[in-house]
Design a protein around this nucleic acid. Structure first.
Lengths: 100, 100
DNA sequence: TCATCAAATCAAATATTGTCAATATGATCT
DNA sequence: AGATCATATTGACAATATTTGATTTGATGA
């Protein structure tokens, strides 16, 4: 079973790899077919699939099947959650002192 | 030379490891001496030092020497930067499409 | 059904991170 | 100076993450 911290790392893993940041940057332009993404990154098809899995797991990216294609886009809801959580993680909270 | 994406990963590495999230959580209670932190995590002194380096590099944590002690705290400025950048990274931007 | 395409999965190879023990550094105190 | 404490650094190793190539899956269309 994952601790709360392990769950949180999953969200931010989206942002701690260069290739994933490149993918996100492409997705800022709107929904894209996965095949277009791999064309524009110098990584193979299976590596892209690996990164997409991590991005989707983070909640920051949504994917949708359409026939044999997978379309990916930035999830507004997931992004807002990542922001909200980041704010929380970095905001003073006196009750956190109780741990120490 | 780091690409812009590589620089950005440094910010979010602060949040993609369980131990670092635990450290941040303790720091939400206010500035702490590094020695207190290692007491409360089941990691050795050198591992703590390793994580602190990554946290400071991210800009999210500030550290300050006082005699032989190192005092650490969450950096408000660094946290705001991480938030601002996260917002940017996940916000639609039509010009990003030009890449594809 | 068969051929084809996009994407997922798997196993193996490689690269990167994280941990530990030992040692170095640098400040403090006697 | 010499002892002691907190922290940083180093090198070896363990643990994870990423890449690659091969194979599988699942949808499509002839």
């Amino acid at each position: 079973m994952d601790t709360v911290y392990q769950k949180q790392t999953k969200v931010y893993r989206a942002f701690c790899d260069e290739k994933r940041l490149r993918i996100l940057h492409m997705l800022r332009g709107g929904e894209k077919c996965a095949c277009k993404l791999s064309e524009n990154l110098d990584i193979g098809q299976s590596a892209l699939s690996y990164h997409m899995k991590i991005l989707v797991e983070s909640g920051v990216v949504d994917s949708r099947q359409e026939g044999k294609w997978t379309h990916c886009k930035i999830s507004e809801q997931g992004s807002l959650y990542a922001l909200k959580l980041l704010k929380e993680i970095t905001t003073p909270d006196k009750s956190a002192s109780a741990l120490i």
